[in-house]
Write a protein that binds this DNA or RNA. Structure first.
Lengths: 255, 255
DNA sequence: CCAAAAGTGTTGAGTCTACACCCATGC
DNA sequence: GCATGGGTGTAGACTCAACACTTTTGG
């Protein structure tokens, strides 16, 4: 699947749907911080969201899965389409030209890579420790960034990230989160930190616990997390059946 | 803007973004029924959602606005992107070939119109009485359908409609609805019927009224709707400032 | 034994639901 | 005057936020 940059750029026109791409906002959670996986393209000044093109005979969603897989090594992950970005301003012809030229290709005006691109945005929630960030052929770096410290991004990628975060926040009250972000076993305070960083807000310990348990998607284990200072907290894991059900039907229905 | 079918099909490759379209789920409200605007393409057996292509130098959202404008005569309308459909199965090459041939064009395998299309779905809420359904050059009919009576639709348009409705329902508890669906002045029972048909569920008259008034987006007028049998209900209109604010910030914030 | 974190319970405010009652209108 | 729909009020259930007390652990 990984081909060298030159061959992708050269044959892209024959391989991919023209003018359409996917971009992935990949969230992870580590050290009580929400992280985003970013990519530094060669010749680019700014970092960017990992993205990719769609093969002519490939489902759009599958292209997103593929990007995720190739940047993190992970498959079978929480992935949601959240918006499609079709503004006119969202193509950086100069950068793309540089990429072509540096690959020894003709930067013909009609080259597929220099056309206007519409991109379908997906966000993913992945297990930070399980993911191994790896750059692709056209990028020189691939790394996790603290959400707070994300640098100015390429093109409209900042907006895309913002929209992903907004969507995630909105869905938080109706959709369970954490299964793929946290390790299999986790404590209630850890889950709370996750919610707090996503929401950017402190929550009450006791009310949080009640609410979460009320959803009925958690199983408390017999074990406790010992070793840390202070009282050892219980470990929990998700009840996968109920979790799936909550994903499908939502956590609370109104009306 | 309206060109004849043949010229569109012939020149489309030069005019439009390849492989990308927009489809609009246009909702109206009349006779206490939620309606959807559907189109019957020539040579097609099934009805379809009104859709269109995106000019090479046009924002995707603007293409949706254009479709809306050209099918209903309305502009400045509530319009929301809800999902992009990128499944492989969603192109009907046979039908498209027929359309080409019937326009006297070569149905070359490479013709832009015969490629796979990804479509961006928008839904719109429009004033039924203000809209004048009009077919375009490639369609033989354009009409409102009762949501309950929608026939089997072309391709995945049934799924698209379903997803639009689902999105609308979900947003109903967080987003005001009705401004563009109802006439300028309306009664509380009328507004309630609207909510009930969207949700497919009966609501309590008194609680509904309290909730709506609680949102603070309605202004009660001095007038009443007389003429009908029974007690004359008050007329209301939306407080546009507060309505806009609610659209932006939501009706209720959690956490 | 003390500080800090975790487990659990309670209370009061506010919200939502399910009602009952009265008023207006056409027949 | 009566059936029907519309305007308004209220009691009880329920939910949620704010808070206190106890327990455990390392130092």
């Amino acid at each position: 699947m990984e081909e060298n940059a030159g061959s992708i750029l050269q044959n892209g026109g024959a391989l991919f749907l023209p003018g359409l791409s996917v971009d992935c906002v990949i969230f992870g959670f580590h050290d009580n911080q929400l992280k985003v996986l970013l990519l530094k393209m060669r010749h680019a000044e700014k970092w960017a969201l990992p993205g990719g093109f769609i093969y002519k005979e490939e489902e759009v969603e599958h292209a997103a899965v593929r990007v995720l897989q190739s940047r993190t090594g992970l498959s079978n992950i929480f992935l949601r389409q959240f918006h499609t970005f079709g503004e006119l301003s969202r193509t950086d012809k100069l950068l793309n030209k540089k990429l072509l030229v540096s690959s020894g290709l003709q930067a013909d005006e009609n080259h597929w890579f220099l056309q206007r691109f519409v991109t379908v945005g997906y966000y993913a929630l992945v297990n930070f420790s399980g993911a191994v960030p790896r750059p692709d052929a056209t990028s020189e770096a691939c790394a996790w960034w603290d959400l707070q410290e994300v640098p100015p991004l390429n093109l409209d990628h900042g907006d895309i990230l913002q929209k992903a975060l907004e969507t995630l926040r909105k869905q938080l009250s109706d959709q369970p989160v954490g299964y793929s972000l946290l390790p299999e076993k986790f404590t209630m305070p850890e889950l709370q930190r996750l919610y707090e960083t996503i929401l950017g807000k402190q929550l009450d310990r006791r009310n949080f616990q009640r609410r979460m348990l009320g959803y009925g998607i958690l199983k408390r284990l017999e074990e406790r997390r010992s070793g840390g200072a202070h009282k050892a907290p219980y470990l929990y894991c998700f009840d996968t059946d109920r979790y799936q059900d909550a994903l499908l039907n939502g956590l609370q229905q109104k009306w």
